[in-house]
Simulated scan of single mutants.
Amino acid sequence: MNLSTPTYAASDQGLDRRSVVTAAAWSVPVIAAAVAAPMAAASGTSTSCAVIPVGGFEVIGGTLSSNGSIGSSPETDGNFGTGWTPAKEPAGDSSTGYTQTDYAVAPAPASWWQGGGEVAEPGFLSLDDHNNTDGASQEPVTVALQFAVDVTAGTTYDFVLPIYTAAGYLGTQHLDVSITGAGVSLPGVVQGYVGDKSISVVPAAVEDYPVLGASQTPAVSFTPSSSGLVFFAYTFTLSYVSGGARQNADMLVQAPQLTSCV
Rank of each mutant, 00 (worst) to 15 (best):
M251D: 12
Q257N: 11
S69N: 09
Q138M: 04
K88C: 06
S185F: 15
V189R: 02
T142R: 04
Y240M: 10
S111R: 04
A33V: 12
T180I: 04
N2T: 06
Q216K: 04
V262Q: 06
S215A: 05
Y240D: 13
E58S: 12
N79W: 14
V262P: 12
L145D: 06
Y234I: 04
Q13T: 12
V21D: 08
N79R: 10
V184M: 09
S48M: 11
A40M: 06
D150K: 10
G213A: 05
V119C: 10
T96I: 12
G168W: 08
T172L: 06
A249S: 05
A233L: 08
T85L: 12
V59L: 00
S225M: 06
V30N: 15
V143C: 02
L258P: 12
G168M: 02
A10F: 10
K197P: 15
G61H: 07
P74M: 04
S72C: 05
P203L: 00
P107H: 01
P210V: 01
A104D: 08
E89D: 08
T180F: 13
S226A: 04
A40Q: 06
A153V: 02
T63Q: 15
T45N: 10
A204H: 07
I179K: 03
I31S: 09
P224W: 06
P74T: 04
N2K: 07
G195K: 00
A50T: 09
Q146H: 02
I163Q: 13
P86G: 00
L252M: 01
F222R: 02
V143I: 14
V160Y: 03
A40N: 05
G14P: 15
T47I: 14
T237D: 07
L127T: 09
T235L: 11
S46V: 02
Y8M: 09
L170G: 00
A144M: 09
F124D: 15
S215W: 03
Y209Q: 06
I52T: 14
E207C: 11
T223S: 07
P109Y: 12
L175D: 15
D93V: 05
D16Y: 09
W26F: 15
S48P: 05
T180S: 07
A34M: 05
L161F: 05
L252T: 14
S226D: 01
A153W: 01
R18Y: 15
T76I: 12
A91H: 04
E139T: 14
V54D: 15
D16Q: 01
P90W: 00
M251R: 07
E207K: 07
V141R: 14
V206M: 05
A50H: 10
P90T: 06
W84M: 08
A245E: 13
A91D: 14
V21P: 12
H174A: 03
A34W: 01
I60V: 05
P90E: 06
I179C: 03
G192E: 08
A40V: 12
A204D: 12
T5K: 11
S227W: 07
A136N: 13
E121H: 05
E121C: 06
T101Q: 13
G195C: 00
V151R: 02
T180E: 10
L125M: 15
D93K: 10
A205I: 03
Y8S: 09
T63W: 14
S178K: 03
P53R: 00
L64N: 12
Q13L: 11
A32L: 14
Q257G: 02
G92D: 10
T96N: 08
S66E: 10
S11Y: 01
T217V: 02
P109I: 08
